[in-house]
């Protein structure tokens, strides 16, 4: 599967309070969360983000709380993929579980600039920077996690496991 969009560049240690501040956690309605996505990191994000755009972070993206509202908000904002040098552990699990594609690529995280246009081939872990004519590789997901993604998230995986039809 390939996705395409414009890069929104953030730094290291983007935390879950920056992705979706706790003051909005009295709801889990995705469209409402999307309206405040990245609010404390970049005021322009929620109104400026276009469907398909890509978030690029540095090290330790998504650190902090276990709120699944963070990947939910990013996904509901229309972001097609998050690329970072590394992800915080709980965010990584949550993103897989809610079906937000994420790629770990220190190289892409270093090279991609705000506003670059990129094409991402999720299955192969290939990131093509069409603004600069560069290509980067992402670290592939372990097979077990790929299976969860292929099932469409952990819920479908469980449905199979307890004998419900997906």
């Amino acid at each position: 599967m390939a996705v395409k969009g414009r890069v929104w560049r953030f730094g290291d240690n983007v935390d879950t309070d920056a992705i979706i501040p706790a003051r909005y956690l009295h709801t889990s309605d995705p469209s409402e969360l999307a309206r405040h996505c990245m609010e404390d990191a970049d005021q322009r994000f929620a109104s400026g983000v276009q469907h398909g755009d890509i978030i690029v972070g540095g090290r330790n993206f998504g650190c902090g709380s276990s709120r699944e509202h963070a990947p939910m908000a990013i996904k509901a904002a229309g972001v097609s993929c998050v690329i970072a040098a590394s992800f915080a552990r709980i965010f990584f699990r949550n993103a897989l579980n809610v079906g937000l594609p994420i790629l770990e690529s220190p190289e892409a995280a270093r090279r991609l600039e705000d506003g670059d246009m990129v094409e991402v081939f999720l299955d192969e872990g290939l990131i093509r920077n069409t603004s600069r004519g560069e290509e980067y590789r992402a670290i592939p997901l372990p097979e077990f996690m790929q299976r969860i993604v292929d099932c469409g998230g952990i819920i479908n995986y469980i449905r199979e496991k307890i004998g419900m039809t997906p």
Binding site: S66, R67, E68, P71, I90, R93, N94, N97, V98, F144, G153, I154, I155, I158, K161, I162
Partner: peptide
């Protein structure tokens, strides 16, 4: 260890977690 809500749902259903 801390996890997200969907993992919590999985554990409430199966009594186990990966």
């Amino acid at each position: 260890t801390g996890v997200g809500s969907t993992d919590m749902a999985a554990a409430m259903t199966l009594g186990e977690i990966w």
